[in-house]
């Protein structure tokens, strides 16, 4: 199918995009467009105006200090996969990027577009949640808000972005040299949307152990109980409480779906134990 007619504006600055968002109903930000365009082609979405921020100033920025790397939203999955800039997560981000859809999609799709689109099955949604990253949103007058990535999604395709805000950067905390991570997603076919996803980070030097179950019907969920058990005994494979915690975290999911999610988390933890150094 072909998209319904829309207007297209290419903006040079975030401010211009914010002004257009505020002025027009039913306008949508276009970054790489690799999630939005299928919806437009299928006419599931019918936006009146696409605001192309691909060439807006500052969205391919990169800034870092000792604890955080701030990544502009315009970097593509393929650029992250190729290690075009330093990966502060000891290989987790490169690993995740490589598993997103297909190379032809990764060459155009952006990290920020994926987060703002807020598909529950999107890799960056769960990855940024498990990393404890912070998302920087810019609104009217250049006012910036910092939102914790683990509470950015409110539901499928619903985020904390206000209607006149643009996601501009992702602040990713650095993992220490002792950090280990595991990431596992269950897909029917390589590159397809995940049916279940598990992500885990254990960074004893920073006293951080976080586990996320993702590709749910809504926001990714942290599993603090299982994470605490893992931190207390990193070699533990038992994780007896995981199934119960998944049931509590995903009360509306079918038992079969919960089993799939528990499996993804177990495999993410197992991948971490066997791969001491990434």
């Amino acid at each position: 199918m072909k998209p319904a007619a829309f207007d297209y504006v290419r903006v040079r600055s975030v401010r211009e995009a914010v002004d257009l968002l505020a002025a027009k109903d039913d306008a949508k930000i276009l970054a790489g467009g690799q999630s939005l365009t299928p919806m437009l082609n299928l006419r599931l979405a019918r936006s009146q105006l696409l605001i192309d921020i691909k060439r807006a100033e500052g969205l391919r920025s990169l800034a870092a200090d000792d604890s955080v790397v701030a990544i502009g939203v315009g970097w593509t999955h393929a650029e992250i996969e190729d290690g075009v800039f330093e990966d502060p997560t000891r290989g987790l981000m490169r690993h995740v990027a490589r598993g997103i859809a297909y190379r032809a999609v990764r060459n155009r799709g952006t990290i920020g577009g994926s987060l703002a689109h807020a598909d529950p099955a999107a890799d960056w949604v769960s990855t940024m949640a498990v990393l404890g990253a912070t998302l920087v949103c810019e609104g009217a007058g250049g006012k910036r808000r910092h939102v914790a990535a683990d509470s950015f999604l409110q539901g499928a395709f619903l985020t904390q972005l206000a209607s006149d805000e643009v996601l501009v950067a992702v602040e990713v905390p650095r993992l220490s040299a002792q950090a280990r991570w595991g990431y596992y997603k269950i897909c029917r076919k390589a590159g397809e949307f995940a049916h279940a996803l598990g992500a885990v980070i254990h960074d004893p030097a920073r006293n951080i152990c976080r586990i996320v179950v993702g590709a749910t019907d809504g926001p990714p969920k942290l599993l603090p109980g299982t994470a605490a058990a893992l931190a207390a005994d990193p070699m533990s494979e038992a994780l007896d409480g995981l199934d119960q915690e998944i049931i509590a975290a995903l009360p509306e999911h079918e038992p079969a779906a919960r089993r799939l999610h528990a499996t993804a988390v177990r495999r993410a933890i197992a991948a971490m134990s066997t791969r001491m150094d990434h």
């Binding site: 914790a148 509470s151 904390q160 926001p219």
Partner: peptide, 23 residues
């Protein structure tokens, strides 16, 4: 791959991170 270098991250005071439990 052409390596991209990061600039110094500048912070304007302490950023308040919004962490909402509201869904």
């Amino acid at each position: 791959a052409v390596a991209a270098a990061a600039t110094r991250l500048e912070r304007l005071g302490a950023d308040v991170v919004i962490r909402s439990t509201e869904t």
